[in-house]
């Protein structure tokens, strides 16, 4: 377990890329794509680099995909953490 879940992801999104006003990041967003959450590729790039840095992991370039979802990104994180362990 990385201990990095949706709550931690939302914290990083807010800190690294900010928050869209009409989107509720506290809601059920696991399967909502990042574009619909208001994040473009640069925002997601910032978020992904931040996670890599804090967890000491490397995520594939495909992790920066605005068509992906928080669940998809968290799965990538879990796999990356397993590779390091």
């Amino acid at each position: 377990m990385s201990g990095f879940g949706i709550k931690e992801l939302v914290d990083v999104l807010r800190a690294s890329a900010g928050e869209e006003e009409d989107v509720n990041l506290e809601g059920d967003i696991l399967d909502v794509d990042f574009e619909s959450l208001g994040y473009d590729s640069l925002a997601l790039s910032n978020t992904v680099r931040w996670i890599e840095r804090d967890l000491g992991i490397a995520l594939p370039d495909e992790a920066i995909d605005v068509g992906s979802t928080p669940r998809g990104l968290l799965d990538e994180v879990t796999r990356a953490v397993a590779r390091v362990a």
Partner: peptide, 8 residues
């Protein structure tokens, strides 16, 4: 300003 604009 909107929150999305602050970090950038």
């Amino acid at each position: 300003l909107p929150g999305r604009l602050l970090p950038q």
